[in-house]
Structures are given as structure tokens and as C-alpha cells.
Simulated scan of single mutants.
Amino acid sequence: MSATDLKALCLEQAAAEETFPFGAEVSVFKVAGKMFALSALDARPLSISLKCVPEVATKLRIEYPAITAGYHLNKQHWNTVLIDGSVPDRLVREMIEDSYDLVRAGLPKAVRLTLG
């Protein structure tokens, strides 16, 4: 999976936007102003940080050495995924979608209704 693929997957989520609050080298993907993904898309090795249900986050870290506790994030709720081919692309896609869904679910109902 490439940086272009990661960016496209994040931006295909409803009302997702790419922002740069930490500088031009770090893409922060948000929905309604709340972060659901973070990646330095030009960095090598490529990685992405995603929100996750704590129990699932722990299981994924055990199953995949390329998935670790979120770098500079709440380690209970965030995982960082090294995009090195060892984590199936399908799983990375699911993790992006799950992260988006978790963040969206935490938004006020009125905001969620405007997202479609």
C-alpha cells in the first residue's frame, strides 16, 4: 500500500478532510474537526496512526508486530501501523474505516446528521 492509497482511503470517508496542524509533513485526517488518522505520508518507513477500540487494539498488537501502540498518542485508544506489507491491505482499510466510525460516533448527534 502506498502513501497515495492511504490518503485516498482516508479521504473517501464522508466529510473527511486533510489538515496540517503539525506542519506540512504530517497529514491529519479529520471528520467534523476531530482526528481519525495521522500520517507523515512522505516518511520512510510509511506508517499511519488510527483510533481503535482498546480490546481490539491490544489483540492487533499481539497478532501483528507491525502494529504498535500509538506513537505520541493515547496508547490505549490508538495504534500505529507500519505499512511494510506484513499487515494485509484489507485490514489497513478496515482499521481506517473503524477509526473514522469511532470518531464519528463520538460526535454530537446534530453534527452526525449533517455528515450524511
Rank of each mutant, 00 (worst) to 15 (best):
2 S>I: 00
2 S>C: 02
5 D>F: 11
5 D>W: 15
6 L>N: 07
6 L>K: 01
7 K>W: 00
8 A>S: 12
9 L>M: 15
10 C>R: 00
13 Q>D: 05
13 Q>K: 13
13 Q>N: 10
14 A>N: 11
15 A>Q: 13
15 A>T: 09
16 A>D: 00
17 E>T: 03
17 E>I: 03
19 T>F: 04
19 T>S: 10
20 F>G: 04
20 F>I: 07
21 P>H: 07
21 P>A: 04
22 F>W: 05
22 F>T: 04
23 G>Y: 06
23 G>C: 09
24 A>N: 12
24 A>Q: 11
28 V>L: 09
29 F>M: 00
29 F>W: 00
31 V>C: 02
34 K>A: 04
35 M>E: 00
36 F>Y: 02
36 F>H: 02
37 A>P: 04
38 L>M: 09
38 L>S: 07
41 L>T: 01
42 D>P: 09
44 R>D: 11
47 S>V: 03
48 I>W: 00
49 S>E: 01
50 L>R: 01
52 C>K: 00
54 P>Y: 06
56 V>I: 13
56 V>G: 06
58 T>R: 07
59 K>T: 09
59 K>A: 10
61 R>H: 06
61 R>S: 11
61 R>E: 15
61 R>L: 02
64 Y>F: 15
64 Y>M: 12
65 P>T: 08
67 I>H: 09
68 T>L: 14
68 T>V: 15
69 A>V: 08
72 H>L: 08
72 H>V: 05
73 L>G: 07
75 K>M: 11
75 K>L: 02
76 Q>A: 15
77 H>G: 11
77 H>L: 13
79 N>G: 03
79 N>Q: 08
80 T>Q: 13
83 I>P: 05
85 G>A: 07
85 G>L: 04
85 G>M: 09
86 S>W: 08
86 S>C: 12
88 P>A: 13
88 P>E: 15
89 D>L: 10
90 R>Y: 14
91 L>Q: 13
92 V>W: 13
92 V>L: 14
93 R>H: 14
93 R>L: 13
93 R>S: 15
95 M>T: 03
97 E>Y: 03
97 E>N: 12
97 E>S: 13
98 D>K: 12
99 S>E: 12
100 Y>P: 03
100 Y>T: 01
103 V>R: 06
104 R>V: 04
104 R>K: 14
105 A>G: 14
105 A>D: 15
106 G>H: 04
108 P>H: 05
108 P>N: 09
108 P>Y: 04
109 K>A: 14
109 K>N: 09
109 K>H: 12
110 A>L: 07
111 V>S: 06
111 V>Q: 10
112 R>G: 09
112 R>L: 08
112 R>A: 02
113 L>P: 10
113 L>H: 14
114 T>V: 10
